[in-house]
Design a protein around this nucleic acid. Sequence first.
DNA 1: ATCAAAATATGATAAAGAACATTTTTAGAG
DNA 2: CTCTAAAAATGTTCTTTATCATATTTTGAT
Lengths: 198, 198
Amino acid sequence: MPYSAEHKDKTRKKIVETARVLFNRHGFNGVSIDMVMQEAGLTRGGFYNHFKNKEQLFSEAVMSFLMGRGAEWREDAGVDVSNLQPEMAHQMINAYLSPEHLNDLDGQCPMIALPSDIARGGIEAQQSFQTLLEAMVSLFETNMSSDDSTNRQWAQAIAALCVGGMVLSRALPDSTLAKEVRVAAGQSAKRLLSEGQR
Amino acid sequence: MPYSAEHKDKTRKKIVETARVLFNRHGFNGVSIDMVMQEAGLTRGGFYNHFKNKEQLFSEAVMSFLMGRGAEWREDAGVDVSNLQPEMAHQMINAYLSPEHLNDLDGQCPMIALPSDIARGGIEAQQSFQTLLEAMVSLFETNMSSDDSTNRQWAQAIAALCVGGMVLSRALPDSTLAKEVRVAAGQSAKRLLSEGQR
DNA sequence: ATCAAAATATGATAAAGAACATTTTTAGAG
DNA sequence: CTCTAAAAATGTTCTTTATCATATTTTGAT
């Protein structure tokens, strides 16, 4: 067996990570397979040894955020998934709506960078999207008071505020207004959080 | 002067309206100029008599929502801009987050259908987007108690919730979860509204 | 060292699409 | 009715791209 199994796996991971960055920046149609492979230091020929088609790559790129770049994100924000504390939800909201996140075109959350692409895309990409959202909602939910069946609702609304605030911010040409929106979304998100923590 | 001025204007408006629908459905890259012109009952040749390029058409299509399809929308929701009443904000929230809106791929608000396209697009499209958002925020703001400087913040957060809830809903493959998110966003939006109306 | 299977590279195809140049059609002015 | 400028249609170019077929390279096992 020439080429160790790890080699193929490493190559595949590199392609996915490269694709994640490029898709984040340019969207599904703005990225060609050539572009991805070149950026990964390969040529387009090998692509179909790793993936069925471009859609599959897209879906995996979206999903890869959760355990890859997203994990770094949570770490930077001081969010420890294995040891959740009430103030972590606050930190998560602040980090998600921060100018740093807005400026991080490569590392940003795909829910912000790619919602239209995913809405129009195949079901696989949508499944990846749903997994991301569920992770985010579950993080907020876990930070609430233990026995209230409405926690999930609050958590979902907070997620909608975070994503909505950033999606709006990204599409606005006036950076002052964009900041206003992020601040407004953040304040309201924390207000909703305190409802859930009551 | 052959061809009355109205004729050209009518043709131009028809192209923009056709483009609005197609862009809403397929996104910027998913729509070709041929497609738009054919759907409008014309051929691609005439396009550049009306528009500088595809970007300009896109920007105008987004903007056209406000006074065109969006006006019908507000009317259906019982929102009269010239005579605002407190309960209109409620109706607006309900209509925006309704399943009817979610299913109206042609008529939906471009902030939901095209945020990624616009974020990556030219400044003209982003200006159009900003105008749409400002109209929405201003509608919520006007429905709040008169003299509170934080009204604008509440209104922006409500808009972020509405847009965020719908953007998420659109990208989720599980329609039950999608509905949950819309309901959660709607409830929280009304909660924030009552804060502003206090 | 050599072999072969797996990975990667190269070559090719067919389609789509933005932009524009040129031709044709239209309808109002004289 | 004729003329003509504007609008619309047709023809064309050049580029990009997803996909796949074929060739080449790599490397662990013999």
